[in-house]
């Protein structure tokens, strides 16, 4: 049983996204800002013939307004027939974890707790797992 995770970094924090959820990682995406969207939405962008809604990942976790995401790598996922891109600071590597994410009773902040399914042990140490689908729920419920 191999569990692959994509390791990314935003705001100095490393985290893992299940590789099965990731469709693509795009660099240099041209992000067009859009009005009247949820605060964490940085804009929309084209990926081939598709329109991707780009979300500032850290803003979604900390329930803040999206910052400038120009030039940041974007992790594209497909959720519920729509394409979402999560802008992060750096995309590192794909690593393997032997076990399923474990819930740890650590003092995580509210945002992380909502977006995460737990920690996994990998070759680079314990990393928090972010589930894109949970991440989308957070701002939608707060709205």
């Amino acid at each position: 049983m191999h569990n692959l995770y994509l390791i990314a970094e935003a705001d100095g924090t490393q985290f893992a996204i299940p590789a099965s959820a990731v469709e693509n990682v795009v660099r240099d995406m041209e992000i067009v800002p859009v009005p009247l969207a949820e605060p964490c939405v940085a804009g929309i962008a084209a990926l081939r013939s598709r329109v991707v809604t780009v979300i500032d990942l850290m803003a979604a976790i900390s329930d803040a307004r999206a910052g400038n995401c120009a030039g940041k790598p974007v992790i594209v996922t497909r959720i519920d027939r729509h394409y979402y891109g999560f802008a992060v600071d750096r995309v590192r590597d794909i690593v393997e974890a032997s076990e399923k994410p474990k819930r740890v009773a650590a003092s995580m902040s509210e945002g992380w707790r909502k977006a995460s399914t737990g920690f996994v042990e990998t070759e680079i140490g314990a990393v928090i797992v972010v589930d894109p689908e949970l991440l989308l729920d957070t701002p939608a419920k707060a709205a």
């Binding site: 027939r81 394409y83 989308l136 709205a143």
Partner: peptide
């Protein structure tokens, strides 16, 4: 070619 947008964009109804 028009496609439905993500709910996060459509919530405003505009």
């Amino acid at each position: 070619v028009v496609k439905p947008a993500a709910p996060m964009l459509m919530n405003s109804g505009v």
